[in-house]
Design a protein around this nucleic acid. Structure first.
Lengths: 347, 347
DNA sequence: CTGTTAGCGCCTTCAC
DNA sequence: GTGAAGGCGCTAACAG
């Protein structure tokens, strides 16, 4: 409070010990006498000493800082992800640098560089569109572990956490079969994409497990949009043997399917069960009584952070470890459109 | 890549100059010969040098790091706020430590302490419930500016950014009067709170400006909840001279008012105009055709960051500067409940 | 168990 | 314009 910041040397002086002793008590070392430790701690409190982690980091050539960069924090999926990361990072005594790229690879490059200069010991990144595998090469070369989440970067030699499309679709079908449905359609999505293939694969496997014959007519590929959903349900309802439920490629499609059902005087969730992959998380409450399959973003964040910290602590950066995270969410929203998951008030 | 990290001394050696010269080019000083600068920059790139900000911070006893702590990042209001902060912070060459407290004052204390140890040069905080003015004393004593956002902490001698309830309510009335309404009710909220008084004040002032007589019957205080909204509209509709529009204490009330209108076979937004303070941001798309008044969280974040950086750069910490930020948002949502503000897909 | 001695990588006087 | 020291606050060896 008087002159400049108080340092270890000040408190060593005041406590009548040497700086190293002070340093040891700061690190909670057991190599120091209980009485001395107590005395030092008292002085620390009295002088209002604050530990300078920067100096320690410099000396030890390592830090307890991790970087997390997301492409769109405005999307609550990523916000939840960041919260999940923060939870484990915090309780591990780390702090997180968080940056938002807004889907700009340039900005991403900047913030990653900045974080590196600040000495992050690991990085979790939900890459902006257009990110290349080479973009993280400098980090991994320097022995800084990187965990990519949500989107996969083919060829990047780092750990990735992406949703398990196969298991998700499978869980959706299982859920519907459990409700007694036998005519379950798969609606929406472009058939020539990898994601479509994975989700369809999960769908087929779960059908087989439930001993339901696969019917090609029930797979209705359309654009992965709301309009696509409307189109899909329209086509499905032309079938002689109509479906009673549908797994939708994503929730946009699911919304469209609901629209289409209502146009036919059918009530989604009552007359016809709809399950959608929850890719557009933000809109979750827009259509009540809709069941969705989604990865739990917070859980994904936690897993990403654990994965990262494991590598940080072991000093080993992993290469090409694809892990998966999926959760089945059955939403119990009220017809009013405001359910128990509605957020807390601000003020 | 070969042995340890490359430092200024390495590049000085390789470029045939001294470390100080390197240091000068790193800082973009004009005191260095153009040719030398170029050569040094080449070597820097060749050796893959990365600047060690930690060391620089230590030496200069300052950092380009700001802390931001929010009480609930899961609430998209705060996520947007963080994005706003990030924007200005990033372009000012700073990085942000972000932490989530989840409304825990203990956690808040921890993260703030941790940030301090890491040498933040400023802090933006949306305080957890129960935060006391004294909690930020250590920071301000150390000359570290603090900006409190969203919630006010009475007695805290720091800058605060809160929404301008008076101006917001006023803008709402103005909006409704502009649409031709003359019987505008004020619905919901407990009459004995400061926030209620402020919003009601703005309502009254705007009425006066629009030359509409204030009618006590049109102020219907109820619980600031959905049920309260239902109750409020019920009571208002018993009046001989019924309202044709309402400013609602918050959006929960507004939802209830809409519920109540529908129960009376009235269509909100068509037969009866409803404007609500958007305190529960997350539910924005739950009730289509609802007009809301809200502070723009991103804008608030940007202003907070600007305010903070101004203090950081000037070295002056401000005390007790209450500023306000309000924006009128007229939502144009489609009847389907999914509007153009729906978020981007994740994958 | 505690003190002494060197730096971590950078920036800042000061000479040259 | 450039080089030579010294030190920011801390910790990692060693001694004692």
């Amino acid at each position: 409070m008087s002159k400049g910041r108080v340092t270890v040397i000040d408190i060593a002086h005041a406590a009548g010990v040497s700086k190293s002793t002070v340093s040891l008590v700061l690190q909670g070392s057991s190599l120091v006498n209980e009485a001395t430790r107590a005395k030092v701690n008292v002085v620390i409190r009295e002088l209002g000493y604050v530990y300078n982690r920067g100096a320690a980091n410099l000396r030890q050539a390592k830090s307890k800082i991790v970087g997390i960069v997301v492409n769109d924090l405005t999307n609550s999926f990523f916000a939840e992800l960041a919260v999940g990361v923060d939870m484990v990072v915090q309780s591990a005594g780390y702090v997180q640098f968080l940056s938002n790229t807004g889907e700009s690879v340039d900005r991403q490059r900047e913030v990653v560089a900045s974080m590196r200069e600040h000495g992050i010991s690991g990085l979790i990144v939900s890459p902006a569109r257009g990110t290349e595998a080479a973009d993280f090469k400098p980090l991994t070369n320097a022995g800084i572990p990187v965990v990519i989440v949500v989107r996969n970067i083919p060829g990047a030699k780092v750990s990735s956490l992406v949703s398990d499309n196969f298991a998700g679709a499978s869980a959706a079908v299982e859920h519907l079969a459990g409700l007694g449905h036998r005519r379950i359609a798969f609606m929406g999505g472009f058939a020539n994409t990898a994601v479509f293939a994975e989700r369809l694969g999960g769908y087929r496997e779960a059908l087989a497990k439930a001993e339901i014959a696969f019917d090609d007519d029930l797979v209705v590929a359309t654009a992965p949009s709301r309009a696509g959903g409307v189109e899909a349900v329209g086509r499905a309802m032309l079938l002689a043997h109509k479906p009673t439920a549908a797994v939708c490629f994503n929730d946009a499609v699911a919304f469209g399917v609901c629209d289409g059902l209502r146009a036919r005087r059918l009530e989604p969730g009552v007359d016809f069960a709809v399950v959608g992959f929850d890719d557009v998380i933000e809109a979750e409450s827009a259509v009540p009584a809709l069941t969705t399959i989604s990865v739990d973003p917070q859980g994904m964040g936690r897993r990403a952070a654990q994965l990262l910290l494991k590598q940080v602590n072991s000093g080993k950066v992993e290469a090409e470890a694809i892990v998966s995270a999926v959760r089945l969410v059955v939403r119990q929203s009220s017809g009013a459109g405001l359910d128990t998951t509605a957020r807390r008030a601000v003020s």
